[in-house]
Simulated assay, not measured.
Amino acid sequence: MRTDRTAGTVRVRGHLDGVGAEALCRVVDALRQLGHRQVVVDLGSATVTDDARALLTASA
């Protein structure tokens, strides 16, 4: 996971499971606290488990 605090973007590579999705949600929350009204999450070609997708959808 790569985070650009200035641009408010997060890039995810590899495999994203429930634990990784929880960490991603914390990063997105931190970017929002830094004042970003819009945060871009780039999943690219990452594989996402069903539980991770559900968590991300719920937090969107």
Rank of each mutant, 00 (worst) to 15 (best):
A54L: 12
D17H: 11
A58M: 09
T57D: 15
V19M: 03
A46E: 03
D50N: 07
A21S: 03
A7K: 12
L24I: 07
C25A: 14
T3D: 04
D4K: 06
R32D: 08
Q38A: 10
T47M: 02
L31W: 09
A30H: 12
D42H: 13
R26N: 08
L31E: 08
A7I: 11
A58E: 15
D17T: 08
V19Q: 12
Q33L: 11
G8N: 11
C25P: 00
D29K: 06
A60F: 07
L55W: 01
A7N: 07
R53S: 06
A52M: 04
L55E: 05
A54T: 14
R32V: 01
Q33N: 04
V10M: 10
H15V: 01
L16T: 00
V48P: 01
T3C: 13
V28M: 03
T3G: 03
E22V: 07
A52G: 09
A21P: 01
D42C: 08
A23I: 04
T3I: 15
M1C: 04
R26D: 14
T47L: 02
A52D: 13
T57N: 12
R32C: 05
G18C: 03
L43T: 01
A46Y: 01
A52S: 06
D29A: 15
V41G: 03
G20A: 10
R5A: 13
T49E: 02
H15S: 11
G44T: 09
A54Y: 07
A21K: 00
A7D: 09
T9S: 15
R53Q: 15
R11K: 11
D4F: 08
L31P: 00
A46N: 06
H15C: 02
V10W: 05
L34H: 09
E22C: 02
D50K: 05
T57E: 14
A30G: 13
V41R: 07
D4G: 04
Q38G: 04
R5K: 12
S45H: 13
R26E: 14
D29H: 12
S59F: 13
A46T: 14
L24C: 05
V41T: 11
T6A: 12
V12M: 05
T3W: 04
D17N: 14
R5Y: 05
V48G: 00
A7S: 11
A58P: 08
L34W: 04
L16Y: 02
D17E: 12
L34M: 11
S45K: 10
C25I: 14
R32S: 10
L31G: 08
